[in-house]
Simulated assay, not measured.
Amino acid sequence: MPLFEIETSAHIIVTWAEDEAAAEVVVQDAFPGDEIMRLTKRPRDTWVISKGALGLTNTSLDPCAIARECLSRSAGDKVNAIRLYRMETGSDLDQARRVIESNMVMGW
Rank of each mutant, 00 (worst) to 15 (best):
P32F: 07
G52W: 03
D19Y: 02
D92A: 10
R86F: 08
V99N: 07
E7I: 15
L54S: 02
S102N: 14
G55Y: 01
L39Y: 04
V99P: 07
C70W: 01
T8G: 10
A67G: 03
G52I: 07
A53F: 11
V25D: 08
R86P: 08
E88M: 11
E7D: 12
P32Q: 01
I12G: 05
C70Y: 03
D29H: 01
E88D: 10
R44L: 12
K51F: 12
T8F: 05
E101K: 07
L84M: 09
A75F: 13
E101Q: 14
G33H: 10
L56P: 10
N103S: 00
R98L: 15
A30W: 03
A96Q: 02
V48S: 12
T15Y: 05
P63S: 09
L3S: 01
T15A: 15
G55N: 10
A96P: 04
L93D: 11
E35M: 01
A22W: 00
L61V: 07
S74T: 10
P43N: 10
L61D: 09
A96F: 09
L71V: 08
L84N: 01
R44V: 12
R86T: 11
A65E: 13
R68C: 15
A10E: 10
L56A: 10
D77L: 06
L39A: 04
D77W: 05
L71G: 08
M37F: 04
A81L: 02
E35F: 03
A23I: 08
